[in-house]
Every structure is written in structure tokens, then in C-alpha cells.
Design a binder for these strands. Structure first.
Lengths: 354, 354
DNA sequence: CTGAAAGCGCTAACAC
DNA sequence: GTGTTAGCGCTTTCAG
């Protein structure tokens, strides 16, 4: 049986209340007894029960994170893992733990949601925009649970952080236009997602403005072994006359099928077709040719989301939304000169690969 | 203020005890009142406080997971994200939540460890072998916290799951030998890691047995932008006479620098040099040529770890260890015919890419 | 400055 | 079958 505050009090020959004050660095304890108790606590390696504290204080010091399962299909993007890491790290800095909940399908969203909310075991939530429907968000709003959304869910008002989808696409589209492309195919995700709409609209606007022809096809995100349909759809569009001279994969998960389609047609990149992606990935550098992409500040996004939530939990009033800029990493897949990509944020290396 | 059991009891005109019995499906309540209370609970959308239950029952229904940060450097492997997903999903099936803790450096390990253990907010732990030192594991043992290690930490006895590192390497090495390679370079991770030792020893043994020459260099896992030193070390070994005809990157994080070295030397794969990796990744299919690799059953590993821990928590006595087999996915990087890789486990697609 | 007591929301004996 | 009571480990008045 682990030590309780009562044990500590008995050993120190004081009351529980006094020990509690020492634990919480509350005033009203003489320096002498405080020192004595502090020492005892250290010697005993006593740790107060977070559960009991939670009951008494009605706060758990846990934040919930609801994101999609990283199934085999989604590992062509490092988005969620990097986001989760950043959130966890930032939360830890304020002594908050992260309670994780993932959903692997739409039906599943609701159960993920209740699992983490059940019993109010978190003080607040960070949720992926795609992970909560209007209903769930509305419920959170009603219940008064503090939360911040990563990405935007249209309609209801809420705190949110996101990358500048429109800006990133605009910048990349202009880059393609500058390189002389007049007919570009964008492969985008499912139409009902706000992030998809933002990217597509921005692409269309930039192309229109230049009097160039924007082609867009929407595709579901699908596990790699099942991407046949997606590959075929892209192949068909790519083969259609008049031919597009550039292909824009508007999400990380669409890059592999896009590559598949290009391989299937035997097109040479960048000579026959220029290619770019949204959402950078370490392997892009090693594709042949290396793939130009819009890089998202994923880590910063996670930090921003967490800070916003922590502010909310502290009773503050953070700005309702925070949009982070993207940047283009030029590699050889568009022809022209490829800048060396700027060095990424350094992280100290510890063993991790398996 | 959320509803409490007291409110429900008052509205139902029964005592808290009776409501509690209904909540826990305990006997001793007439069918009629049970039905009435159940209905009321549903109408009110009452959820008992997990914190209060935790206090009373001395179990939190949370499991802790301690894994490395997924810094930029480690996203060339999908190992940790996939593992985490599997754990979370399996835990959810038994109504357990996952409390996440990550460490981004060796110094950090201890704080990650105390953060999650502080206040006993978890019933048990799944930890990455590299994440806990002997000291921490020993402390867990002493404190009697149930835990299972993913990978092996030598010395102390503990429950653990792992992939068959030796078997996977042996199989792949034999494959290379069959293709006629007599001099092979393995790039492996830091020597002090058991998984690295297992892979290296198995490689050496298989090569020796065939009278072939095994060359091994150890390299730290390092962030992508800093891999210059690693690339250079590999390049140097690759250039050394007599030349190796095959290169074995013994961890996911070593594949990008290995590719870098090969590119730098202008070697053609597989004609000048065959290349294989340990730990498969969705992008390997789109490298040129597609990379042959040892695939690890990561998801199954996570499920096994979680099941072992859940069994422990339920008071059972699971087998102390579980080793899962790997399989080779043949692609074109070794020359010869490349089998189509067997279809991976299907997952239903929901929007996830950003 | 310190101790005693009430209460956070729930469970589990044990009466009735 | 149902109500009552005593904790679970901690915080927080409020006396002394």
C-alpha cells in the first residue's frame, strides 16, 4: 500500500492539513515545520494521489486529445504523430498529462468521444477538426468543457488553430504558374472536409486569376493496399487530353497514389509532368526526383493548440484562433533549380528507431 | 455543476447505494427500480465521475504508455505511431484510457517517468525498452506497478513483447546470400541497444555460417538535417575496397542516410549495390528502385503488449514474453524478381490526411 | 501557526 | 430489496 498523507502526518507528528499546506506551498506553516515535513516527504518519496487531489479540487490535470487512428493508410503523413508529440511535450511542461483517444471510423467517433469524456477525467480537450461532428462539438459547448480544435469545423464558434491552407496552396500554385504551367491537376481529399475545400478553392482562385486551367478531382483517403481506385482515377485524368503539365497532390495521403499513377503512365518527372505535394515528409527528399512540397509547421501547431487550451484552463481568454503560415520546400520535381530545403528544427537524438 | 449520484438518487427517490448498484450492475435491486433508475440515468445523461470511482476503488482504468518523442528524425519509421494506435484501440475495447508520456532525450526519461507515475494515475504501464533504464524498471518492480516492455531490456525480469529481430535479420541475410552476395555492409544503430545487438549478432552469425564477409558500422539515430555524419560514414564504408555488394540498413531511421550515401556515390541500385532495410514503410514502394525490407507486425505487437498488460491488471498470469515473427517484403532493390508485397491488413478509411 | 472536521463523488458493508 | 454508514486521500475552512 502506498503512503498517504495521513502516514506522512503521523510520522511528522502534525495534522494532515499541515502536510497539505506544505505540499501546496500554501502559507500558514512555520519555516521550521515546513522544512521538516519537506525533508520527510523527500525521504519517504511520498507522492500525493492525483486521484484524491482531483476529487477534492475538481480538476484532473489531464487534457484529452482526440485524433484519428494512424492506420497503415495514413503513415504517408507525419502530421498526427508530430502533432501529438508537440501537444504532449507542451502539456508536460505545465504538468499536464495527455489522455489519448482515437477513432478509426466515422461511426467510431462518438465512442471515442464518450470514452474520453466519460467520467470527466480530463479538464479540457484538443480535437482534430475531422474527428468531431457538429453534434459532438455542440455538446462540448453546452457542457462547457474547454476545448480547442486543430483545423476548422465550420459553423459553431470555437477556439482553433490551423495552418494557412489557402495561403500555402496559393503560394505553390503561383510557383507552378511562374514555371509556365497553364493546366494543372489537383488531386484533393473528400469534398466535405473544410481543409479540402480551402485548398481547392484557393487553387481554383489562383489559377483563374492567371487565366489558367484548374482541374480538380476529389478522392477519399484510403489504405495503401486499397488505393487502386485512386491511382486509376488519377491516371485517367492525367491521360486525358489536353494533358495537364503539373500535378498537385493536395494531401500527404494522396502522394503515394499520385506517384503510382505517374509510374503507371511511365511519365518522367519533371520533364513530362511536374509534381508537388501539400504536407512535407522526410522521404520526399529521396524520391526520384525529390518532391517539392508545402511544409506545415506541425510542431508549432501542436504547441499553439496546447497553449491555447492551457490558457483556457487557467481561466484566461486566448485569441479565438491562430493560423500558422506554411512554407514551400523546393526540390527537383518541378524542374528549374531546386533550392536546398532550409534546415528543419533540430531535435536531440535519442534512440528511437526500431 | 455536473450531476452527481446524489442528484440521481434524490430524483429517483432512492439512496445513493441503490443507484450505485444499478451503475455497477450489482445484484440486490428489484427489476422495477433498476429499470426506473436506468431510465432516469439515460434521460439525465448522467455519467459517474471516474475520479471518484477511482478513489473508492483504487483503480483508474488508465494505462500509461511511455515512448520516445516522434521528432523529425524519427518519422522515417512508422513504428511508434502505429504501436500507439494499436495500444489505444485495444485498451479502449476494455474501457481503458491511455495516458501518454514521451521523452525526448535521455535526461528526460526520468521526468517522463515520474510525470506519468506521479500520483498513481495509471493502473499499469506499457513502456518502450529504450525508454526506461534499469533504475526505472527496478523501481517499477519494487513498487509493484504492473508493466510490460516493448522490446527487451536485459537484466531484470519483466513481461515483454518484441519482434523476432534475430529471425528477421537471419532471413534477410540468407536472402542476400542466396542472391550471391559475399560481402555485405550492415549499418546499425547504437551498440548499447539490445535490439541493435540482436540484429547485428544475427547478421554476423548468418554471414559467418556461409563463410561470407560481414561488415558492420554503428551509427546514432540522428535528426534528418543532421545526418551528414552518418551519410559520410556509410559513404566511406561503401567506397572502401574491396567493395560490398549489398547494404543492410538495420533500422528505419538509417534508411534515409543510407539512401543519401548511395546517391552521393552515384551507385545504381540494384546493379552496383543491393539494398535492404529493417522495418518496412509505405514509401519504400515508391523509392527507385522500391526497397526490399523486413516488415514488423507493429500493430500485432501493440495488441499483444496491451493484452498482456490487461491480463496482468485483471490479476491473471500471462506468459512472460511474446515474440512475433517478421516477414520479408521483396521489392526491386536486390535485383532478381520482386514479388508483389502481400496485401497489408485493411483498415477502413476515414479522413485523416492533412 | 496548527489541529479538527467537513466534504469532494463514489463504493461496499451491513443494518433494517 | 433498500437505506445507512464508513471510508478512499486529499483540500479547506474554521477554531483554538
Amino acid at each position: 500500500m502506498p503512503l498517504t498523507i495521513k502516514d506522512v502526518a503521523a510520522l511528522a507528528k502534525v495534522s494532515k492539513g499541515t502536510v497539505s499546506k506544505v505540499l501546496n506551498e500554501a502559507p500558514g506553516v512555520s519555516a521550521a515545520t515546513r522544512a521538516r515535513i519537506t525533508k520527510l516527504i523527500r525521504e519517504l518519496d511520498y507522492q500525493p494521489s492525483a486521484v484524491a487531489q482531483g476529487l477534492a479540487l475538481r480538476r484532473t490535470h489531464n487534457i484529452g486529445v482526440v485524433i484519428p487512428h494512424t492506420g497503415e493508410y495514413s503513415m504517408s503523413s507525419a502530421y498526427w504523430p508530430l502533432l501529438l508529440t508537440a501537444i504532449t511535450q507542451r502539456a508536460a511542461a505545465d504538468a499536464f498529462n495527455v489522455l489519448l483517444s482515437t477513432a478509426h471510423s466515422e461511426e467510431d467517433v462518438d465512442s471515442a468521444y464518450r470514452l474520453i469524456l466519460r467520467g470527466r477525467r480530463v479538464d479540457g480537450l484538443v480535437v482534430g477538426a475531422e474527428q468531431f461532428g457538429q453534434r459532438q462539438l455542440g455538446e462540448l459547448l453546452v457542457k462547457g468543457v474547454p476545448f480547442v480544435v486543430v483545423g476548422r469545423s465550420p459553423g459553431l464558434p470555437h477556439h482553433h488553430v490551423d495552418v494557412d491552407n489557402a495561403g500555402g496552396v496559393r503560394q505553390m500554385t503561383r510557383h507552378l504558374l511562374e514555371l509556365g504551367h497553364r493546366r494543372v491537376l489537383m488531386v484533393a481529399g473528400p469534398e466535405h472536409l473544410p481543409s479540402v475545400t480551402e485548398r481547392v478553392d484557393s487553387f481554383r482562385a489562383a489559377m483563374d486569376r492567371a487565366g489558367a486551367e484548374a482541374r480538380v478531382i476529389h478522392q477519399p483517403y484510403v489504405p495503401a493496399p486499397r488505393s487502386e481506385g485512386v491511382i486509376e482515377a488519377i491516371r485517367a485524368q492525367l491521360a486525358a487530353e489536353p494533358r495537364c503539365t503539373a500535378l498537385f497532390a493536395a494531401a500527404g495521403d494522396l502522394v503515394p497514389p499520385a506517384l503510382g499513377a505517374v509510374e503507371r503512365l511511365g511519365l518522367r518527372v519533371p520533364d513530362d509532368l511536374a509534381m508537388v505535394g501539400f504536407d512535407d515528409h522526410p522521404f520526399y527528399e529521396h524520391l526520384s526526383p525529390p518532391l517539392t512540397a508545402v511544409a506545415q509547421p506541425i510542431r508549432e501547431l501542436g504547441l499553439a493548440a496546447t497553449e491555447m487550451l492551457l490558457a483556457l484552463l487557467a481561466g484566461g481568454e486566448p485569441e479565438p484562433s491562430r493560423i500558422l503560415p506554411t512554407r514551400i520546400v523546393r526540390r527537383a520535381s518541378c524542374g528549374g533549380r531546386a533550392d536546398a530545403s532550409r534546415a528543419a528544427v533540430a531535435s536531440r537524438g535519442i534512440p528511437t528507431a526500431r
